[in-house]
Amino acid sequence: MINLENIVKIFHKNTINENKAIKGINLNIEKGDFITVIGSNGAGKSTLLNIIAGNLIPDEGKIYIDNKDVTKTPDYERAAFIGQVFQDPLSGTAGNLSIEENLAIAQKRGEKRWFAKGVKSSDRKKFIESLKVLGLGLESRLKDKVGLLSGGQRQALTLLMATLVRPQILLLDEHTAALDPKTAAKIIELTEYFVSHYKLTALMVTHNMKQALSLGNRTIMMHEGQIILDIKSPERDKLTVKDLLEMFSKVRGEDIVDDKMLLN
């Protein structure tokens, strides 16, 4: 459904700081895939996500969504197909606007916006039903400014907004990394619910190896701008965190991988 063909991304091209972040990646994301992406810092995980979302334009290669070439399509047009949740819980919502206004913006993703009333009373009923799913009591706070919410609440709201109009693909960029463990677990639970309930296709970057293997149906390991492992269920089910860590050490030629990964 989504095809990346020979993607190359170079930062600071032709300067002393030239950095080949993505070195010729080919990836075929099937409809219904829930892919977890792991790799050490600087492996190119976030760059890959940003290239799919259109926030970055690749130097070489093509991106197809449903066989349509979207390589040059600007991010805001591509957003019609894509739902995004960022690492920073403040990034996905507008703090100065109320919960219902944020949801109203999300509900128009991929549509033309003109002079129709932003929040209609029929919308409010829908929003209340949607917010109940989060289980955070936000359904009684429609008119509260989002800036009043906690990071976890905002991330849950972002997740809801990213899926309010069903995306062709949901991009999750370490979306629990900035949250405390309990809140992170809640967001992961909601992520699983939304993906399975709406049968979404998703790509999730994580630093948590256990999560990478337990969530979704497919895991990709990246290293220095390349995909060095791409494994699907049922083969993936046999893999353990220890196996992954060993693979990591092998490619990096080091014993200890990354503090973050071990701690998780």
Partner: peptide, 26 residues
């Protein structure tokens, strides 16, 4: 105007451009 679809998008633009782009607004 500031409560229409385009008005909401405009208010959000001054607040969080990343979010607005991710929601499909130029």
């Amino acid at each position: 105007f500031l409560h229409t679809d385009i008005g909401l998008a405009m208010r959000a633009t001054g607040n969080n451009m990343k979010m607005v782009k991710a929601q499909g607004v130029s």
